[in-house]
Amino acid sequence: MDRYAYTNKIADIGPGIKVAVCILAILIAMSSGNWLINAGIFIVMAVSTLACGIPLSFYSKVLAIPFGFMLMGFFGIVLNISADNILAWSVRLGPHYYGFTQESVADGVLTISRSAAALSGTIFLALTTSADSIMRVALRYHVPKVLLEVSVLIYRSIFIFLEEAIVIYRAQELRHGYESFRVARISWAMLLKELFKRVFSRYDAMVISLECRNYNGQFKMGD
């Protein structure tokens, strides 16, 4: 998933600049009331991301998930229900009119363009900059250390967790654990149970290992 963050064309370029670009994109998007500007930001960020060597197929997959939610939000904003026929365009279902007004469409377009612009900036950062270098930038700008320590640990643990889950899943799949809905249900339950158990045994191992390495309450990352 984060392989591109380490291998793209600007992976080695100062993370500070990339973080600044991302924040700038978000700030402009939040403050502008013009959907054209937002669309412009989206296009610029998307083109820059693709120009860094991120394949279009991967990029569109990454975009697809949040876009799904954004579309749902869009319809939520645009859709109006009224007892009288006052909407710009509507259909009548039972006693109510369902449709939208010009203002609601304008609101919806602005909101979706704003989120798309902010999202494109965030994804640009996420796909071109490794989590570790983002942490470095955060450390430099005095983001509270506790937050960073937690982020560093979560980041590392995600991969351990995923790897464990994949190993268990494969082992089950190879012994026909997902052949039918009935066995798949049992396999999923066992997978979750096993993961839960492993989290605890990992925790025990981690405590021992931390103790041996003189852990004293802080995951230090240097200054």
Binding site: D132, V152, L153, R156, Q218, M221, G222
Partner: peptide
């Protein structure tokens, strides 16, 4: 035994402690 995803930080862990 490895807590950090950055190799450098992990090797430095014991020393920073």
């Amino acid at each position: 035994q490895i807590f950090f995803s950055r190799i450098y930080d992990d090797v430095a862990f014991g020393l920073r402690n």
